[in-house]
Simulated assay, not measured.
Amino acid sequence: MAKKQLNVRVDATTAEIARERAEQQGISMNQYIERLVQQDMGEAGRTFVDTAAQFMKEFETAFLAEFGEGPAGELQDVRR
Rank of each mutant, 00 (worst) to 15 (best):
M1T: 09
Q38D: 01
K3T: 14
A18D: 08
T51L: 08
F67H: 13
D50T: 07
G42T: 05
T47P: 03
E66H: 06
K57F: 13
D11Y: 02
G45C: 09
Y32V: 01
A53V: 14
R19T: 11
A2G: 15
R80H: 05
G42W: 03
Q76C: 05
G42C: 03
T61C: 10
T13Y: 15
M41N: 06
A62M: 01
A65D: 00
M29E: 13
A15N: 12
F48S: 10
M1S: 14
E16R: 15
L6Y: 09
M29Q: 13
A44W: 05
E58G: 10
E69F: 09
K57W: 12
Q31L: 01
Q25L: 09
F48D: 12
E60H: 13
A12F: 07
F55R: 00
Y32H: 05
F55M: 00
F63E: 00
V49Y: 14
G45E: 14
R9P: 08
A44K: 03
T47E: 11
Q31M: 00
K4I: 15
Q25G: 08
Q24C: 04
E23L: 06
V49P: 02
K4A: 15
N7E: 06
Q54T: 11
N7R: 02
Q5F: 10
E66F: 05
E66G: 10
L75W: 13
S28Y: 04
R9G: 06
A2C: 12
K3H: 14
L6A: 08
M29D: 11
Q31F: 06
R21M: 11
D40Q: 15
Q38R: 07
A65R: 00
I27T: 02
V78S: 14
G26A: 00
A62Y: 04
N7S: 04
E58P: 01
R79H: 04
E58D: 12
E74F: 05
Q54S: 06
V10Q: 01
V10S: 01
N7A: 00
A53D: 13
T51G: 09
R80V: 02
R19M: 11
P71D: 06
E60C: 08
Q54N: 09
L75M: 09
M41R: 09
R46E: 06
M56R: 15
A44M: 08
E66L: 08
Q54V: 06
E23H: 09
V10N: 10
I17P: 06
R79A: 07
